[in-house]
Design a protein around this nucleic acid. Structure first.
Lengths: 217, 217
DNA sequence: ATGCGTATACTCGGGGACGAGTAATCAAGA
DNA sequence: TCTTGATTACTCGTCCCCGAGTATACGCAT
């Protein structure tokens, strides 16, 4: 598992999720991501963006749909997501949601594009993650307790930290999963409708346009 | 702040901390790190190790002390840390401890080499981190609450996750700091002695040799 | 003694990440 | 109207990461 992706950079995930909404040219992607507050969690590196877009195209996950040039500006190529790209996106999110990893930024990324899956599947994957997480946590706790009998705290402090963070993740996932399965998660109905029919609820449609996460000055 | 290091890879930090104990050749460093359980937190990439060692040497943070060849084996170059290397190590740890960053693996790395600083300085730096952490957390919480009035939970879930993790970090740092300042941290006296005189307490010395963190089979 | 697996000890080359640079457009103030 | 600064929209080159490959030595079983 943890299949190697054709394009491994997490920015590729963000790009794919942006292109699901509508075709864009690279700079536009960056603006959209910035508006969605993605620049907080995942710094936008300009150099990487264009490399990533290029690689996504090379692997057929996105394709150039038109290439307009206005004025003396450099030409702008608009990219759209392909069917293969959609498959890659959902498959990737599934993996990131279900399997815990050391880098927590991968889970953050997964959560930020969870909407491309159905609520039911998300809940299912989160349950898998929770199980794996709990198992791993128990094992690490046991190993730490074992080591603590010989090794002074000073040299185990980093493992304690990781366990504390892992514990918080377990708590978060459990809470989120609870809300999803009990149906108390706000907006669950809209999400459900969207995932079945692709219809964006009206009050959301207008948000999409002007961007979530207004800039704080 | 967050000065750019000559060698930015976190493995460089691990290498420096290994060489503080005694000079080694690269493969030995990897073994030592593996024995210390560093391979759990920070995967050892073979390719990187040699690049990192090379770069450290280039920048004068370590230096080749001898180069033995036995049998038909490829020649092994033994490296020792330089004075500049020591300075870089402590300075780097200071920065990593005091300033919170998005990548939690950096703090893990910092904690794992915290022993190169004195307990008092560590406590001081942790206090700085705590302050920064709390300030940032409050700001992010406020921003989230603000955004939640317009944007559905579904698109804020990743920020909730990050806040949960950040909260756990605050708790951990506060706890650790408490133990350090109140003097209840086990082994504090030994650590104090070591940082003042460089003397390793006898029961530790023998641990050093055969490696902390026994392998679990 | 001979093969085979495993540990030791690296090397190398492709590819990706990313900062700094570039260059045109546009709005607004002096 | 001229300049200045911000915004748009990239390009380029360097540095660095890292997986896969290589090659020898050693122990152990047959």
């Amino acid at each position: 598992m943890a299949k190697r992706r054709k394009v491994g950079n997490l920015m590729a995930l963000a790009v794919l999720s942006a292109l699901v909404q509508r075709p864009m040219h690279p700079y536009q992607m960056a603006s959209v991501l910035r508006e969605h507050g993605k620049d907080q969690n995942m710094k936008i590196k300009w150099g990487s963006l264009y490399t990533v877009v290029q690689n996504l195209e090379k692997h057929g996950l996105i394709e150039a749909t038109e290439s307009t040039r206005q004025g003396g500006r450099p030409e702008r190529t608009v990219y759209g997501i392909t069917e293969a790209g959609r498959v890659e996106l959902t498959d990737w999110v599934r993996e990131l949601l279900a399997t815990p990893e050391q880098e927590q930024s991968r889970f953050t990324a997964a959560l930020s594009v969870m909407a491309v899956l159905s609520p039911a599947e998300s809940a299912d994957l989160l349950a898998q993650r929770l199980t794996a997480l709990e198992k791993g946590l128990a094992a690490r706790r046991a190993a730490l307790a074992e080591a603590a009998r010989e090794v002074p705290r000073l040299f185990l402090v980093e493992e304690e930290y990781e366990l504390a963070v892992a514990d918080a993740e377990v708590g978060f996932v459990r809470g989120l999963l609870g809300e999803l399965t009990s149906g108390t998660f706000p907006g669950l109905a809209d999400w459900q409708v969207f995932s079945e029919t692709g219809v964006v609820p009206p009050e959301l449609a207008e948000l999409m346009e002007r961007g979530l996460h207004p800039q704080q000055p």
